[in-house]
């Protein structure tokens, strides 16, 4: 039995695990895909997260107990190894350090690595997009090498430019919009991660793979000019 609990009167939160694991992630995605194909009456929105799927529905159409029963049935219908859903790798060009990555030095100091080693490690792996949340188009990425983990800044910045690439603890991510924030900013991408004019406004989707590629300041500006 999956663990289900209400989130207010209009949603059921399904818990499929208690820690961040790829298997749990694929189960969440498979359940979301199944419900998108075969929605139950009154279902109007799904929020997939690391270990949970939350289904919002109209309680005047479907009761809480009915919603749980539909979800239970959908879970049972999933095959054991559901294939990854969005097998797409997105390359994100990043200009590291300097004005674009004001905290790169601080991360170097913290980790005992030099700047080039941090860039090499950050660009060396494929990251999995576990979920989009926190802000429009913001990807939660899994897979960062532990050697470059660094704590959040003690003083959050009031303004972090859109496209900033940061590290906070074991996580790395990209800010789609200008916001305040406490992440260590190591670089910036000229790509737009949130495009409100698109039907799928987030550049990245849960299940995508992401690879960072180091670019020069000159390349950054060229790419930025192209996107204007």
């Amino acid at each position: 039995m999956a663990n289900m609990e209400p989130l207010g009167e209009q949603a059921v939160l399904v818990r499929l695990g208690t820690e961040i694991r790829e298997e749990t992630f694929y189960e969440v995605q498979a359940l979301a895909a199944r419900l998108e194909e075969q929605p139950f009456p009154g279902l109007w929105e799904l929020i997939p997260a690391f270990t949970t799927l939350t289904a919002f529905y109209d309680p005047q159409v479907t009761s809480y107990e009915q919603a749980c029963a539909y979800l239970e049935k959908a879970l049972h219908s999933l095959t054991a190894n559901s294939a990854p859903l969005h097998p797409r790798t997105v390359e994100i060009p990043v200009c590291y350090g300097g004005e674009y990555g004001p905290d790169l030095e601080a991360v170097a100091d913290h980790t005992g690595l030099d700047i080039q080693e941090i860039i090499t490690l950050h660009t060396s792996v494929e990251y999995l997009v576990y979920m989009i949340g926190f802000a429009p188009g913001f990807p939660y990425l899994g897979g960062m090498p532990e050697a470059i983990a660094a704590p959040r800044r003690t003083e959050p910045r009031l303004k972090i430019p859109a496209g900033s690439v940061g590290i906070a603890g074991q996580q790395t991510g990209v800010y789609p919009l200008e916001t305040p924030g406490g992440w260590q900013i190591i670089g910036r991408t000229p790509l737009h991660l949130f495009r409100p004019e698109h039907e799928r406004p987030s550049l990245l989707q849960a299940g995508n793979s992401v690879r960072f590629r180091a670019v020069s300041a000159e390349e950054f500006r060229e790419c930025e000019a192209e996107r204007r």
Partner: peptide, 10 residues
């Protein structure tokens, strides 16, 4: 805690 859904009124 691992991030999960919130809604109006949470």
């Amino acid at each position: 805690m691992i991030s999960e859904a919130v809604t109006s009124g949470t």
